[in-house]
Design a protein around this nucleic acid. Structure first.
Lengths: 112, 112
DNA sequence: CCTTTATATAAATTTTATGTTATATAACAG
DNA sequence: CTGTTATATAACATAAAATTTATATAAAGG
């Protein structure tokens, strides 16, 4: 799943998460998004490219501006995967053979 | 949030997600985890270190083995953040001023 | 003890990300 | 047209990640 790679990687950067946080307040242009960061405009453009590549944001053309907004169902696949993981974790948590394995380890330790 | 950085980064790698998938079936040792991959054991050890650092797995000591398992509530913070983002996206989706902005762009385009 | 098994760590290398400066493009304002 | 504004791209530097080979450690099995 190459898609999850890019999605998770996109979310792994604090600047990009901050950009998403800003976009949660509504659409914004590249300059507006760049303003709060101590970073050049090209750097922000690249972050936006990563976010767009991950399907997390969309851009429209408005004259010389490129307003960005959050992509509505971007996190669907991420969600599905995390749901699966969450369930696996829950299952794992109360899995009997794991408990038994642990008991065996803890108790069966003393040399027979 | 340095934590989200490491968590998302940990999930951004397909090998590591595959390792989590394997652990979803139950506890496994380093060698067992390494086996399916075309990769050396040290490489897998490092991936495990990353997963452990992200709080996604735990390890116990069993003699010379280090069985790994999924950490029960590892994805809590990720979940919280994604929940927030999801809601932001939903809010954004039916936000009136965004719709209006879009209409203005689309229609008001013709030179007055 | 000595060997093997399971894992970790170190050093070196390759790859990928991130950022910078400088420059291009393209619409807009006069 | 011309200058300015908004954004993108290219070329480069640096830094961080992923991997490998070689080696260390430590418990287990004889």
């Amino acid at each position: 799943m190459r898609n999850l790679d890019t999605a998770f990687l996109a979310l792994a950067d604090p600047t990009r998460r901050a950009i998403l946080a800003r976009l949660a307040l509504g659409e914004a242009t590249v300059m507006e998004l760049a303003e709060p960061f101590d970073m050049t405009q090209p750097a922000v453009s690249r972050h936006l490219k990563v976010l767009e590549g991950a399907g997390l944001i969309t851009r429209r053309v408005e004259g010389t501006k490129r307003p960005c907004r959050l992509a509505p169902d971007a996190i669907a696949e991420i969600d599905r995967w995390l749901d699966w993981l969450r369930q696996a974790m829950a299952r794992n948590y109360d899995r009997l053979d794991d408990v038994l394995a642990e008991m065996q380890t803890e108790e069966g330790k003393e040399k027979p």
